[in-house]
Structures are given as structure tokens and as C-alpha cells.
Amino acid sequence: METATHMLRTGRRGTLFEFHMALRDLRASGDRLGLAWSLASHDVVSRYRGSILGPFWITLSMGLMVLGIGVVYAKIFAIPINEFLPLIALGIVFFGTISGMINEGCETFVHAAKMLSQTSLPMFTFVWRTVLRNLINLMHHLVIVVAVLVIYGYWRTADVPMFLIGAVFLVLNASWISMLAGIASARFRDIPQVVTSVMQFAMFVTPVFWPVNRLGKHVVLAANPFYHMLEAVRAPLMGGHVASSSYVVLTLMALIGWGVTFSIFAVTRRRIVHYL
């Protein structure tokens, strides 16, 4: 990079200026997406250094969970295993990604304290680091998804383009929640515990382990953001259709969520480094 860079830091100059600076941070993080990627892949590599299976350990434990729950609950619910096992396999993998992004989001800024307090790196870089790290993990877990889809023959009806669209919706929504959790956790050290509890609760009220149709049209589904996120990626792979209302909810949620999160970021941006 041979171009000279320019850095300007000023006192508060009104709300509009704060938004302008927040937008600059976002743009700068886009220019340095490679750095976020390097940090994320370094995180994954260093977490599993010296282990033979690496991130596949989680894949393995997820696989065992899928197998165990799949076989036992298929009996309990009296659902054919070739319907039930793929359902929870996809449920566990994708919900794991959602909750991973959100739970680890709590540490986004706290862990970057040292770097944030002596460099001018964009703050969004660390948000992308968390998101990308979880996407890297997801790539490993896709082994389970592919295996299940092939074994039970769903690959013939799987709609991959719609799945990818659903994945974009999932990331768009999980990332703002992740960032919001990051900002809140930097300021209030109770937030990580709250987030963990909420995500655990969410796992049980979201159709991760149980078929959607057993509940019918229940408020737990319609008002559950994670249900829509999960359906957007799971249904296309299982040959089902995603209700258009789900896309509406996901779009609205992404717009409003990012609007709120970005506003909070714009207002607290200059304070975050002092929270840490």
C-alpha cells in the first residue's frame, strides 16, 4: 500500500458527523476485509493447534448429537427417521452458527481491547472477524449437512440457490445481533451471561429439535426471529418452501436491526475504547 493515508479525529460535531464517522469506519473495514479474514482464520487455527481433528472435533460432537437425538426422538415423536434425522442435523448445524455468532459477539470488542487502544483499525473489522470465524466453523460442519442430504436422498430436491439466499439473510441478521451484543458487553459485563441464557432459551423454542408442523401456527414460531433465520436455510435444502412472510420478517429485521445497531454504534463509537 503505497498511498499516503490520512487520519482525522475530532471532538463531537453533532449527530450527523457521528454517523458520517461511523460510516467511514464501516467503509474502512470493507477495505481491510482481508485483515478480518486473517484474524478469523488465525483464531480457528490457534484454537485447535496441536489437535489432529481441529475444528472437526465440534463437527464430530455435533454429528454424535444428531445421531443420538435423531434416533431416540424419532421414536418418541413417532416420525420416520429419514424425515427426522435430516431435520435436526440441519437444525443443530445452522442454529449452532447463529448462536455462535451471537455468543462470541459478546467478546468482539473486549478481546480486541489491546488492538483498539493503540491502532486506528476500524471497529467493524472485529465484528467481521467474529462473523467470519463462525462461517469458517460452519464450512467444517457442512460435512454433516452434505452427508445427511446424500444419505437420505434430499440432494435431489435441494434448492441450493434458495439456500444461499437464506444464508445471506441469516448472516445479515446474526451479524447485527452479534455487534449489538459486542457493544453492550463492552459497557456492561453482565450482558454475556444474559446473551448465553437467551440463546439457550431460544434453542428450545426454535424448531431445532422438533418438527415445525407439530406446533401449528403458534406465536412461538411467528414471533421468533431465529425460526425465520433457520427456516430460510433449512427448508430449501429439505425440498420445502420458505413462506414469503419469513422473507418479509427477515428483511424487516435486517433493516431495522442494522438501523438500530448502526445508530447505537455511531453514538457510542468514540466511547467503546474507554469501556474496555
Binding site: A4, L8, R9, T10, G11
Partner: peptide, 14 residues
Amino acid sequence: SGAYEPDEGAIEVQ
């Protein structure tokens, strides 16, 4: 280094 935002005034580095 650009880590802190001033409360008043400005820092400019080229």
C-alpha cells in the same frame, strides 16, 4: 495513532 477520539479539538495526521 488514531485509537482515541478527542473530546474536544482535532488530530489530523497525513
